[in-house]
Amino acid sequence: MSERKPAPPGRGRAANIFDVARLAGVSHQTVSRVINDLPNVRPSTRARVEQAIAQLHYSPSPAARALVTKRTRTIGLVTPGISDYGPTSIAMHFNFAARAARYAVESVSTPPADPKSFRAVVDGLLRQRVDALVLVVVDVEVLELVRNLDLSIPVVIAASTARRSPGIVSIDQYRGARAAVRHLSEIGHTRILHVAGPRNATDATERVRGWRDELAEHRLEIVPPVFGDWSAASGYRLGTELDIEPGAAVFVGNDQMSIGLFSALRERRLRVPEDVSVVGFDDIPEAGYLFPPLTTIRQEFDTLGGLIMQKVLIAVEESNPPTEDTPLPTHLILRQSTRPVDD
C-alpha cells in the first residue's frame, strides 16, 4: 500500500508552517528551527524541511520569525531632515550594508536641530520593536540628548565630536580640516580664512577647531570665521563680504559653499587659483568638474556605512557591547583650485 501524501494548500491560499511540517513529516517546531537557522536539527531533517519549503513556495512572515528569535531583523534609522551630501551619503551607504546583511531598515527623518522631535521619533521606532537604532546626528544639542539615552536595545550614533565613546562612529573632521590648512600653509599662504558651516553643526564645530589649531601651530593669523548654512547661496553671500585680497586663501566648510564662493570671487574679479586658493570639504561628485576643479577633503562614506552596520551586528547577533573606534581618516584631493603663492 503506497504512502498517502498530504493534500496541498487550497487554491488561492498561501502555504503555512503546518503545511510545510506535514509535507516534511516533522513538527512545526522543527520547521521553525530550520527557518530561523537554530541548532540541534539533523542535516537530513533540515534538507527535508528545506525541500518542502521550496516545493510549497513557503515564505515565513517577519512576525512569525520574531516570535521565535525575539528579533525582527529590522533596524531603526533616524536621519536629519536635510538633503546635505554628508548625512544623505551616510544613510545611503548604511542601507546598502544593512541589505547585504539581510536586515531591513525603517528610516525616519526629523528636523536636524530639534531634540524633542528626535526623541519622539526614537520612541516611535522602539514601539515597532526594532533590533537596534542608528542615529545620524548633525546638531550639537541633539548629540547631547542621544548621548544620554538609556535604551534596552543597541544604539550606534554617527556624529562628529571631540569626545569619543564606544557608541559613536565618525569620520575625522578635525584632522581633515588640519590637512586642508596645512596644504595651504605649505604652498605659501599666510592668511587663510575660513567659511564655516552652521554654528550648531557638529561637523562645522570640528572643522573650525581643526582650522584654528593648524593656524596656531604655524603661528599664522587667526581671523574669526564666518558661518554659512552649507548651501551654495550662503557661500556666495559670504564670498561677497569677505575681507580678502590677492595672495590669500580660503578653507571652505563644504564643497557646496565653495561653489557659491567661486561665483562671488569671479564677480569681484579675483581669480582662483591665481589670486586666491580655495579648498573645500566632502569631495562631492561635481567637485572635479568645477572651473577650476576643486581641491577638497574626501570622506569615505561607504566605509562609514559598513562600520556602522558592523557595530550593529556585533551588538545584536553577538550580544557584545560596542568598542571605541578611531575616527575614519579623510584624504586630501589635490586639484587646480590651489597653487603655490610664488607661481
Rank of each mutant, 00 (worst) to 15 (best):
L133W: 03
R65V: 14
V226G: 08
H218E: 12
E318D: 13
V181W: 13
Q29P: 00
V26T: 00
R237G: 08
Y103L: 13
S258H: 09
R339E: 10
L270S: 04
L184R: 07
D275P: 06
W211N: 10
R212K: 12
S185Q: 12
A52I: 08
L143R: 02
R207G: 04
V49Y: 03
D84L: 05
A63K: 07
L220S: 02
P322F: 04
L238E: 08
A159H: 10
S59T: 15
V137N: 01
N36L: 07
D37R: 14
V146P: 07
L56Q: 08
K5D: 14
G235W: 07
V138H: 03
R178L: 03
L67I: 04
L304N: 07
A159C: 14
A14F: 08
L143I: 01
L334S: 00
A63Q: 12
D172L: 13
E214S: 06
I308R: 07
V31C: 05
P198A: 11
G86L: 02
F251G: 05
R182I: 05
A113V: 01
A233V: 12
Y58D: 09
F262N: 11
V341D: 03
R271Q: 10
T303R: 15
I157E: 11
R237A: 15
Q336G: 12
F227L: 04
E300P: 11
S117G: 11
A7K: 14
V136C: 10
V272Y: 04
P9A: 04
L184S: 04
L135N: 06
I90M: 04
L135Y: 05
A97F: 02
V195Y: 13
M309H: 05
V136T: 11
G305T: 02
V20H: 04
A66C: 05
E267M: 06
I333K: 11
G288A: 15
N148G: 15
A233P: 03
L184M: 15
G247Q: 06
P322W: 06
R147K: 12
E245V: 13
I35C: 09
R269E: 08
P225C: 02
L242E: 12
D213R: 01
P112L: 02
P225V: 09
F118M: 10
V250S: 12
E186K: 09
A264P: 07
Y58S: 09
V208C: 09
Q336E: 14
G210V: 03
V146R: 08
D139F: 00
Y174W: 13
Y103S: 05
V20C: 02
P285F: 02
L328M: 05
I168P: 06
A249V: 04
L270A: 06
T326V: 15
S83D: 14
N95S: 11
R175G: 08
S170D: 10
Q256R: 12
S170P: 04
R71A: 13
D84I: 00
D302W: 10
I168M: 11
G25P: 09
Q55R: 15
L328F: 00
P273D: 08
S109D: 01
R46G: 12
A24G: 01
Q51L: 12
P8L: 12
P327S: 11
P115W: 07
R298G: 03
F96M: 05
R71F: 09
E241Y: 01
W211A: 04
A159K: 04
S165K: 13
P87H: 03
S44A: 15
G239L: 03
